[in-house]
Design a protein around this nucleic acid. Structure first.
Lengths: 142, 142
DNA sequence: CAAATATAATTGATATATCAATTAAAAATA
DNA sequence: TATTTTTAATTGATATATCAATTATATTTG
C-alpha cells in the first residue's frame, strides 16, 4: 500500500494545516483573540443577515453542534448578539455587535495579508486549476 | 474583502473535510473502530520501527500533545504496545500488537478503495500538479 | 383538528488541535 | 563534575469535530 506520506491527501492536510497555523499565528501576533473559525462565522453573519445556524453550518462546512458552540462563545464575548426570531421560535436572530464589527474591520488587513502571502508566486490560472481539482475531489467523496 | 466562500482556502477545507468524512464513514461502515488518524499513526509505527513520538508528530503533521493522546488511546485498546526504551528513558519503544497488525491488514482494502474513489477521473498528471501547488502553499506559510 | 413528521437548535460523549507549562532524563559545557 | 541547556513526553486549558440523542417548535397530513 502506498505510504500515507506519499498520498495527495497528506499534501492536502499539510497545506491546510500550514495555512491555518500561519493565519492563526498572524492573528494572535496582531493581538486578535478570535480564531479563524470564529472570524469566518462572524463574517458570514455580517454578510448574510437573517442566516440560520443550519445555513452557517453548511456554508462554513461545519457540524451543527460546532456552530452552536462557536456562537455561544462569540455571544459570551460580546462579538455577537442572539435574539429570538419573530416568526419562528426555534430560530435565533443573529447579529454582529459593534465590537464584532470593529474586530472584523481591524482583522481584514491581516486576513488579506495572510491569503496573499500563502498564495505568493501562484498564478490566477494555477489557483483556478487547484480549485477545480479540489472540487472534483469533493464531488467524488459524496 | 473577498468572501471566504470564494477563496481557495475554502475549497481546500471542503475537499479535505469531504475526504475525511467519506473515508471515516466507510471505515465505520466496514466495522472498524479506528479513526483515520489512529490508523495513520498505527501504520507509521509499523513501517518505522523505533520511531519516536516526536517523529510521529512531524510525519503525521500533528501536535505532540495529540500524538500522546492518540497513542494512549491505541495502547488502551491493545492496538499498540508501549515499552520503555533501553538506552533513553525519556522515550518509549512503540510496537504494533498482533491485533493492531490484523486491523491494519483488514483496513487496507477499504483505505485503498477510499483513495481510489476520491481521485476518480483525476489523471496522474493532475495529481502531480495538485501536489505541487499544495506544496507551494505549504512553503509560503512557513 | 389531532397525530405524525420535519426542522432548528442544543446537549453529551469522545476524539483531536493548539498553546503553554511542567516533568524527567540526557547532553553539553563551564 | 556541577550547572545549564536540550530533548522527549505529559498535562491542563480551551476550542473544535463528530455522532447520537433530545427538546422545542413548525408543518404536514389523515
Amino acid at each position: 500500500m502506498e505510504r500515507p506520506a506519499q498520498t495527495i491527501f497528506y499534501s492536502l492536510e499539510k497545506a491546510i494545516k500550514s495555512y491555518r497555523q500561519f493565519a492563526q499565528r498572524n492573528l494572535a501576533d496582531n493581538g486578535f483573540s478570535v480564531t479563524i473559525d470564529q472570524g469566518l462565522i462572524l463574517s458570514l453573519i455580517q454578510d448574510n443577515p437573517g442566516i440560520t445556524q443550519q445555513q452557517i453550518a453548511v456554508r462554513a462546512f461545519k457540524d451543527h453542534a460546532s456552530v452552536t458552540r462557536i456562537i455561544e462563545n462569540l455571544v459570551s464575548r460580546d462579538f455577537l448578539k442572539r435574539d429570538f426570531h419573530r416568526d419562528d421560535r426555534r430560530r435565533f436572530e443573529l447579529s454582529v455587535t459593534a465590537s464584532g464589527t470593529e474586530t472584523l474591520l481591524q482583522m481584514e488587513k491581516t486576513v488579506v495579508g495572510n491569503r496573499t502571502k500563502a498564495l505568493e508566486g501562484i498564478s490566477a490560472y494555477e489557483i483556478e486549476t487547484l480549485k477545480n481539482l479540489l472540487e472534483r475531489i469533493t464531488q467524488n467523496c459524496k
